[in-house]
Simulated assay, not measured.
Amino acid sequence: MTALCTALPAQLSLLLVDDHQIFLDGLSLALAPLCADLQIRTAESAAAAEAYLQHATFDLILLDLRLPDMPGLELLQRWQQQGRMTPVAILSASDSNLDAQAALAAGALGFISKSANSVLLRQAVTRVLLGETLPAPQADDKPQLTPRQLEILQLLAEGLPNKSISRQLGVSEDTVKTHLKSLFQEFAVHTRTACVSAARQRGWL
């Protein structure tokens, strides 16, 4: 732990963005030994995070993929488009290699699993703070979309509504909705447009 403190500046400011306050409290405690003067701000939504960024600067933002008002990936992409220079690392319960690859492609400097213990968490955060980009975790059981999901994804990209998709594939609208729900969960999005965008980023379209 001493090595971590000597490797970093004595003063750091972090913004933690996650919609679970209990997790934020635990994360704050886990990161406390990073340096002597660690300032931590927490936000439970994308809107709260953006409000902080209007009047404060941070050395690092730890961002969850799933927020109540906007997917973390979309928020990260917005910051990139705005030209924000604050380093961002994704901290997520997802173990999906696809999520990790998408986060790095969108500009994140790392993808850290929430299942990491305190020591591994501090090590990962330290590496990012020192300017290193963490590689995406490699998984042998990389998630794959089903043939039906791929068909629906392609028709979704063409702008077809559920009724047209169900008619073209010969399945019920409820079946289409079920597959769409699975796709939204896999890509950590809430809208059809965001789903298509995330699928393109990951090479499915």
Rank of each mutant, 00 (worst) to 15 (best):
Q39C: 12
L75H: 09
A194N: 05
I40G: 08
G110D: 04
A89Q: 10
T2S: 09
T6Q: 05
D64I: 03
E158A: 08
Q39W: 04
V196W: 09
D25M: 03
L29E: 08
S166E: 02
E132P: 03
L104M: 13
S197W: 07
A103Y: 03
L8V: 09
T175Y: 11
L8E: 02
T6W: 05
M1C: 07
Q80S: 07
L8D: 02
G26E: 04
Q144A: 01
G203A: 05
L169V: 07
I22Q: 02
R200W: 08
D25S: 04
R78Q: 15
I112W: 02
L155W: 02
I61M: 13
R41W: 08
L4V: 13
L27P: 00
A93T: 11
V176L: 10
D99H: 15
M85P: 04
D64H: 03
H55S: 14
L73K: 09
W79V: 06
L67W: 13
N162D: 15
L4I: 15
S92K: 11
L183Y: 09
V119R: 12
V196E: 03
R200K: 15
Q144D: 01
I152E: 00
Q81M: 12
S182V: 09
Q168W: 06
L180M: 13
F23I: 01
D99Y: 07
L169N: 02
S92L: 13
L63I: 04
R167F: 09
A194D: 07
S28T: 15
A48K: 13
Q144G: 01
H190Q: 14
D95N: 14
